[in-house]
Each structure stands twice: as structure tokens, then as C-alpha cells.
Write a protein that binds this DNA or RNA. Structure first.
Lengths: 223, 223
DNA sequence: AGACTAACTGAATGACCAGTCAGTATGGCA
DNA sequence: TGCCATACTGACTGGTCATTCAGTTAGTCT
């Protein structure tokens, strides 16, 4: 093993065959991260290839060496972000604890706040607009939405089976809860002034409590 | 008062004094309608001034004669559309009938369907994305959202006061219902395949029934 | 070491488009 | 009737930006 390979080995999850492949993977990841920062800052429509180049300290030409087109760059970035968000949701929902605790954890993780996950919200609200006319983005958005509903449904189903919850139709309930959370997140992201994070969590808990057939107070003791 | 001010006032009022002012008002309205069609077809970000010109069979220069900039054109169009949508909602909600009937009417009017009101949804989903970074659009979107919540709140309050509904906090309930409807509309507009209009109305009615303290069956008899 | 090839640069290209402007046509008023 | 403000035209301009490509640098292989 060369010194080069050892240097990059930790940076990438998969173990590529050569240092070159490693470098390519690292560079692609770097460009995708820069792309996400640019899109967050300027929006999908206003993001420029040159911005990504500058953001990652690289020439404009290199972007097109790694990605066939601007569209491919944006789409790939979005898919990567979607997979990351889904993984995070699954991890939280599938973690330890009662179904109630996990549901609450998902809600608190999901609600946008000043601490940073707003980034995802900004990205997805922007993506919804693009999804109206871009098939790739619509597919990615659909996958993410579907996965979210699945995650919620699984937690609700867990709670129903263990007797914690009383929910006659976990699938429909999950769908409705997901829609409500989308609406809540949208509103608070767009009009931060109109509602505090605490109020929003309260709204989400209220709806969730109804969905799972428990009183709102079931959540109250959690921080 | 200068002639210009007079002309502008006429353009806004319903009965213009002169043929010229009439012409200007008609032209502006025509251009705004064309703009809406273009934005619906191509999206906010992709809409071109030349498209609007072609759509209304007019030279490109004329657009800038009536509107200071592309941004002003889009913003004005959006504001006009928002006012139209709000007026429609108020009319439905303030019409005759029991509070329950009116609430159901609002829901059915609100849910996107194949018959045409999808246009509004497409427009607003697109606008949400732009609202992330455009202050004017954010303000318009906020006004529309606020008016929607008000409309829902008024109906809920009516029903509570008349004894039809049992709702301890009409304001919070309206907010939650509005968020749910946004989420529902978003999903069905983006992924039409995943849910029928009937199912969606059922979801909305279910949530509304909970909000107003009635069983879902209260709605069932309506067409 | 030398050859080969992949990663990378940055200037050039050309398409696209909002906004401008000099000029034309026309309805209404003196 | 003739004058003039105004509605309107369409060619033009200046700037932006994705994409290309000829050339350069630097790992890797024998």
C-alpha cells in the first residue's frame, strides 16, 4: 500500500481498489457537499456551476470532468442528501426505547429549529418547486416522502402491536401525520417569526397524540 | 393631479373614465394572465419575458413598458393570483349553510383535483421555493397563508359558537388544519399517482372531524 | 527512469435573455 | 383638421453562464 492510499483510506467508507479511484470518490463527495452549500445559499434556480467551483476551490472545468452537466450535479447532490436524511430518520425511528419515545424523538428531529436541520427543510422546499417540472427531482422527492411515511408507519405499527398505542389504521395515520409535519415544517421555515419551535413541537405532538389514540399529556414529561 | 396619476387610479378602479386608461388596465390584466400561464407551464425560474410576450401576442418591449422589471411582473402576477384565491376562499367559507357544510365545502374546494384548481397549487408550491430567498414573494405567500388560516378559523369559530362543533382552541385548530391541508395538497400535486382525490378528501375530513370534535360520519352524507 | 494516463486548469465559445431605445402608429383633444 | 401624448414595435446591447478543449501537472506502472 502506498502512502497515498493510506492518507485517504479513512475519508471514504468503501475501500476502493486504487488511490486514483479513492481520489475521485473524495473529489466527487467534496463537490457534492459544495453544491449543497451553494444551493442552500442561492437556491436551485440561482446556483451556478462557477459558484460550486469557487466554493470548493477548484476550476470550473473540473466540475464537468466529474459530472456530465449541471443538471446531473444538482440531481446527484439531491439524491445524496435524500439518502442521508432517510438514513437519519430510520436510525432515530429504529433506535432503542418505547414506540412513544421514538415517535417523539422523530418529531423533535423533524421539526426545523435554529440548530441546523433547517438546511434540509430549505433544500426540500426548494426541491418541491423543481419537482413540479423535473422528473428526476420529482422521483427523488417521491422516494424521500415515501420513506418518511414508512418510517412513521413502522413506529406507529410497533406501538400498536406492543399495546402502547390505539390506532386502527397505521398506514393512513402515518400518511396524515407526514402531511401535517410537511405543512408545519413548511410554514415555520418560510415564516419563522410566526411560531416558535416549542409551539410547533406542541402542534405536532397534539396531532401525533390523536393519531396514536393517547392524550397529549403522554408526551408532556419529555424535555 | 397629473394625468398619469389619474390613469393609474382608473386602472385600479372598476369604471375607468377614459378609453386609454381602460386600455392600459385591460392590457395589464392580459399580461398578468399570460404571465400566470407561462409560469404554470415553465415554472418561476424558467419563465422568460419573451414567453409572456409571445403568449399574449405582443412585442417584448411592451412588457417593460407596463412593468418595470421581470421581477415586478412576476410579483404582481403572484399578488393578483393570491388575492383571487383568498377571495374565492372567503366566498365559500362565508356563504350560506351550516358551519359543517361550509367547512366541508372549503375542504372540497381546496383539495387539488383534475378539474383545474391544481393550477393554484402548482403556483403556490413554486412560490414557496422562491419565497425562501425573495422577500416580496415571501410576504405574498405569508399573506395568503395567513388569510387561509383566518378563513378556517372563522368557520370553526362559527360552528363552535352555534354549538355545532366542540373545539377548545379554534385558532390552534385552524392552524393545524391549514398545515395538514398544505401537506396533503403538496403531496397529491407532486405525486398524483399515489392517491386519489376521494382518498385525499377522506383524509382531510378525518382531520377536520377531529379538530371540530365530531365523528367522521358527520361528513359522510355529503356528495 | 521514462512512458502513460488520469486529474485538473483556465481561457475561449456561443447560446441565451433582460432591459433599452429610436422610431412608428393611433386615439383623443384643441 | 391637425397636433401630441401614449401605446407599441423590434432590433440591439451588454452581461451572464454552461460547456468545451487544448494544454499542464502529477500519480502509477514497468
Amino acid at each position: 500500500m502506498t502512502r497515498f492510499v493510506r492518507r485517504y483510506a479513512d475519508a471514504v467508507a468503501q475501500t476502493p481498489a486504487s488511490g486514483r479511484a479513492n481520489q475521485v470518490a473524495a473529489r466527487r463527495a467534496e463537490l457534492l457537499e459544495a453544491t449543497e452549500r451553494v444551493v442552500l445559499a442561492r437556491g436551485f434556480a440561482e446556483a451556478r456551476v462557477a459558484d460550486v467551483a469557487q466554493e470548493s476551490g477548484v476550476s470550473g472545468g473540473l466540475i464537468h470532468y466529474h459530472f456530465a452537466s449541471k443538471d446531473a450535479l444538482l440531481t446527484t447532490m439531491l439524491r445524496t442528501a435524500a439518502e442521508r436524511d432517510i438514513a437519519r430518520a430510520r436510525k432515530v425511528a429504529g433506535g432503542p426505547g418505547t414506540a412513544l419515545a421514538r415517535l417523539d424523538k422523530v418529531i423533535r428531529e423533524f421539526v426545523p429549529g435554529p440548530r441546523g436541520h433547517d438546511a434540509s427543510w430549505t433544500l426540500w422546499i426548494d426541491a418541491w418547486g423543481s419537482a413540479l417540472r423535473n422528473t428526476h427531482i420529482r422521483d427523488i422527492s417521491a422516494e424521500l416522502d415515501g420513506a418518511w411515511v414508512e418510517v412513521l408507519e413502522q413506529v406507529i405499527r410497533d406501538g400498536t402491536e406492543s399495546g402502547e398505542f390505539e390506532c386502527p389504521d397505521p398506514s393512513a395515520s402515518a400518511w396524515r401525520l407526514a402531511a401535517l409535519l410537511d405543512g408545519l415544517g413548511l410554514r415555520i421555515t418560510l415564516q419563522r417569526a410566526s411560531m416558535s419551535r416549542a409551539e410547533m413541537i406542541e402542534h405536532a405532538r397534539f396531532a401525533a397524540a390523536h393519531v396514536i389514540g393517547l392524550p397529549l399529556e403522554a408526551f408532556e414529561n419529555r424535555p
